[in-house]
Nucleic acid binder design. Structure first.
Lengths: 127, 127
DNA sequence: CTCTTTCTACTACTTTTGTAGTATTCATTA
DNA sequence: TAATGAATACTACAAAAGTAGTAGAAAGAG
């Protein structure tokens, strides 16, 4: 999978569907998209075309129907978004971000344990 | 300070200047903006007008010059962006986000220590 | 073989954003 | 007081994004 192109908010919602399961027919995608968004079918079609046009997804013809698959990976896309977010709002640094995030969020014990574990695993691997 | 309106990337760069120091004259803002961005003066003026129009900043006339101040707080804006980011990419949950972030980031010892401390402080206050 | 349905292919139109240009208004200087 | 310069007020225009509509083609129903 390749360098991630610019993906808009609405397009991203379609990508999520593709990342969960692919290849999917236009109709499948439309149906799934409409579970969570009140989008006209045509709107979903447009989003799919645009994603294909910008190289974020590809399609394969089966008879007269199209089956779409993602061309960029969820992982690399999330990485890019993570960094863009950190850079824009926290000068690229994690600590201030986490701190801002936690300062206004109620965490369950489980959350805290998870976070502990995540950070500890980093510590060990960094030895 | 009030509910944060939609602020575009370029507009946000102007807001950062205002959050650091205000009120500031149009010229001051333009000058500071140009330290980090190659923006035409008119571009900065447009951004300022739009921020004022959408209620993110306000201005006060002093003679024929305008002095701008932020109308929304950096804190509340960052909170909103934090949550929108978490919701969009991690189903609103912090742990998966941190985990994704750390999985692809080299952390210094200091970073780790900071993170530890941030999380420990949460733990104690949650007791 | 024609009609209807169902896909995809184009086209469209509005809002937001990025990025500036032109017009107008005052205040100051000659 | 007329010319100049410096501010702000409007206007502009293209690209991206949101949201659909219309046209055309092909497949299945009679």
């Amino acid at each position: 999978m390749k360098k991630t192109p610019q993906i808009s908010r609405a397009e991203y919602e379609i990508m999520k569907i593709l990342w969960d399961d692919y290849p999917l027919s236009t109709n499948d995608i439309t149906e799934r998209a409409q579970r969570s968004h009140s989008w006209n079918q045509k709107t979903v079609h447009t989003l799919l075309s645009r994603l294909a046009a910008k190289g974020a997804a590809s399609y394969e013809k089966q008879g007269r129907m199209y089956f779409y698959s993602p061309l960029i990976s969820r992982e690399s896309y999330l990485q890019q978004e993570n960094h863009s977010f950190l850079d824009r709002f926290y000068g690229g640094e994690i600590a201030p971000m986490l701190s801002s995030l936690l300062a206004h969020t109620e965490l369950s014990d489980k959350d805290l344990e998870d976070l502990h574990e995540i950070i500890n695993s980093q510590t060990r691997s960094g030895d």
